[in-house]
Amino acid sequence: MTDVPVLDVRAMSKVYGSGETAVHALREVNLLVRRGEYVAVIGQSGSGKSTLLNILGCLDAPTSGRYLLEGLDVADLDERQQSILRNRQIGFIFQSFNLIPRTTALANVELPLVYAGVSRRTRRERARAALDLVGLGRREDHRPNELSGGQQQRVAVARALVTTPALLLADEPTGNLDSASTTDVLGLFDALHRAGRTIVLITHDDEVAARADRVVVVTDGVLTEAGPAAQRRAVGEVVT
């Protein structure tokens, strides 16, 4: 089972509308991400990377092609099964953190386990362990407005990790952070990658993308791979 890719996207297209007004957001996309890989997806606004993110996160469905997550064809699952898969196998990290303002860091991290029906004692233990992992064990009783932007994003990462997902899916995770907090959060991603986590990071920032093992460039709905030696040049060509 360890040889099964975490993500296996095959000839996937996404079309909005029909006829002359049809918008081809993705065109015959192929993407394979193996366990432990750190992949950055980069492209300009409107390139299709947000559509790709939504499909990889089981929040949208392709018009054609296949998407397998941990060997499961997502199209074969009903909405309830997709929701369970999304909660258990995908850890989401958002640009805007998406923390609940009036609850503590610990309670925010526990939330996915509440939805999964995990007992209070177990979810509390797992949430504390996740906060310790991101270096915020001493801040578990702090609310989001009592934390810096970088610390809030660390809470969001802990929340994404708490279900031990197969995939961390990060959407512009440094977009709302200053340079110091960006460096801090990217260092955390580096550490998670070294620990064997599978990460797909969506970004428009070439410096953020350059931290990954692989860079995938999205242009007008078409994906192209940039090898390690050429990735900084390829990324620079997209954003300049």
Rank of each mutant, 00 (worst) to 15 (best):
Ala180Ser: 13
Val114Cys: 02
Thr122Ile: 08
Val218Gly: 01
Asp178Tyr: 08
Val162Leu: 09
Gly117Ile: 09
Asp76Ile: 00
Arg154Ala: 13
Leu168Phe: 02
Thr63Arg: 12
Thr240Val: 07
Ser179Tyr: 11
Ser148Glu: 11
Asp178Val: 11
Val118Gly: 02
Pro101Thr: 09
Leu77Ser: 03
Cys58Asp: 02
Arg232Ser: 11
Asp190Gly: 13
Gln89Ser: 15
Leu26Gln: 05
Ala229Phe: 00
Ile199Tyr: 02
Asp220Arg: 14
Gly175Gln: 08
Gly221Gln: 02
Tyr67Phe: 15
Pro173Trp: 11
Val215Phe: 08
Thr103Gln: 14
Leu136Gln: 09
Ala25Arg: 04
Gln81Tyr: 00
Val15Lys: 04
Leu167His: 03
Gly48Trp: 07
Glu172Ile: 07
Arg10Trp: 00
Tyr67Thr: 03
Ala191Thr: 15
Gly91Ile: 07
Asp184Trp: 11
Leu69Lys: 06
Val185Arg: 07
Asn98Cys: 10
Ala11Phe: 00
Ala105Val: 12
Ala75Lys: 06
Gly19Ala: 07
Arg214Ile: 11
Val39Thr: 13
Val29Trp: 01
Thr219Leu: 02
Thr63Met: 09
Leu56Phe: 11
Ile199His: 02
Arg34Gln: 13
Leu68Glu: 14
Arg86Cys: 01
Ala180Asn: 13
Thr122Arg: 15
Leu26Tyr: 03
Val185Asp: 07
Arg80Pro: 00
Gly91Thr: 08
Ser64Leu: 01
Tyr16Thr: 06
Ile90Thr: 07
Gly91Val: 09
Asp78Arg: 03
Leu56Gly: 03
Val118Asn: 01
Ser47Phe: 09
Gly17Phe: 10
Asn145Ser: 12
Glu37Phe: 06
Val157Asn: 04
Thr174Val: 03
Gly65Cys: 10
Gly150Cys: 11
Arg128Cys: 10
Val162Trp: 04
Gly57Asp: 06
Thr51Val: 08
Val216Gln: 13
Val134Gly: 02
Gly36Tyr: 04
Leu7Asn: 05
Gln81Met: 01
Glu140Ser: 12
Asp220Trp: 02
Leu7Glu: 06
Ala158Met: 09
Thr240Pro: 01
Pro62His: 09
Leu131Arg: 05
Thr174Tyr: 06
Val235Lys: 01
Gly65Met: 10
Ala156Trp: 04
Arg102Thr: 14
Val41Leu: 15
Ile84Asn: 01
Thr164Arg: 15
Glu125Phe: 01
Ala40Ile: 08
Asp205Cys: 07
Val109Ala: 05
Gln231Met: 15
Met12Ser: 04
Phe189Tyr: 14
Ala191Val: 05
Ala105Ile: 11
Leu161Arg: 04
Gln151Val: 12
Gly17His: 11
Leu188Ala: 06
Asp132Lys: 08
Gln151Ala: 09
Arg121Ser: 13
Val4Cys: 12
Leu169Ile: 06
Pro144Phe: 08
Ala107Leu: 13
Gly236Gln: 13
Val217Met: 13
Tyr67Glu: 03
Gly227Ile: 11
Gly221Ile: 04
Thr198Tyr: 07
Phe94Pro: 03
Arg143Asp: 07
Arg120Asp: 12
Gln152Asp: 10
